[in-house]
Design a protein around this nucleic acid. Sequence first.
DNA 1: GTATTACACGTTACACTATAACGTGTCGAA
DNA 2: TTCGACACGTTATAGTGTAACGTGTAATAC
Lengths: 159, 159
Amino acid sequence: MSDLPFAEHDHTHCASGGLIHADRLAEEKGLRLTPVRRAALEILLSGHRAMGAYEVLDHLKNKGFGSQPPVAYRALDFLVENGLAHRVQRLNAFAACTQPSKHHRPVFMICRDCEQVAEAEADEVQETLINVAARADFEIERVNVEILGLCPSCKVDPA
Amino acid sequence: MSDLPFAEHDHTHCASGGLIHADRLAEEKGLRLTPVRRAALEILLSGHRAMGAYEVLDHLKNKGFGSQPPVAYRALDFLVENGLAHRVQRLNAFAACTQPSKHHRPVFMICRDCEQVAEAEADEVQETLINVAARADFEIERVNVEILGLCPSCKVDPA
DNA sequence: GTATTACACGTTACACTATAACGTGTCGAA
DNA sequence: TTCGACACGTTATAGTGTAACGTGTAATAC
């Protein structure tokens, strides 16, 4: 798995690594990483980008799972709740967590040209958000930070 | 208009203030704040919360404007592009900008209980985001920061 | 003055995203 | 063995968003 967002790397490797991590996490926490759920994660991992629920559903269908939307949404919701994937609001899409071992309060960088999504760890951002919320007496439960712009490649050579 | 998110205040006042500001901005920048667009802003301002496009559309319809979705979406897109309103991704909704005079890179706090949305100015957050993006060689165009949790009232007395 | 262009705004029709509600099977606990 | 919880499949429908096209209007070019 890449620590450098948008850097080149071996997708096959990060996909299998992600699954291994998920299996371990499931065992540790007693999560029920059922076949559909694991398959959904695998799809996200190998796609290695944000995918819509219906796109995931298509793949699940091909693998012999159910063919109706709730099948995909339920699996994806499970993954999100357990930190194995994230929802990218801006794209109405889902992406496998690329840094599942860390305590994840990620920042997403979304290229508006090629739609690649990178996940960055940014504790500094989270700290400032805690301050902002504190000033308003607001109790934080979840945070969603998305940066839209151009990734290094598209900045140079627009797709 | 309130500087303190979630604080009590006079909605009528902040609605008219918002419209006056919009008129001035339109004049200064040569924006075409047409009747539908102005009406859409007025609806958002007086609702004083995040509203779905179809909800805005209903109000537009009642005021004699077109009744089909593109009418609302176009007016709302115009407002967002010109900083008079924001899109709240988490809720698939729109909210009038409460601090339109400031350079706005706002942070939203969304109460998951009462669905109220507050907008906070947070330059500190934006600065850290600039750093994060710089580390990844990512070019920022827009930023969306949303905090989900409980507002001061709902924290004490859940709706 | 008229042609051209740009744009706002209305329409119809459709695509995409998401959830409600219900039935069945499985598995562990009472 | 019966109950409850839950996973997962279904059907049906709700909610969100856009594409494409026609008309009117206003500013600019000729």
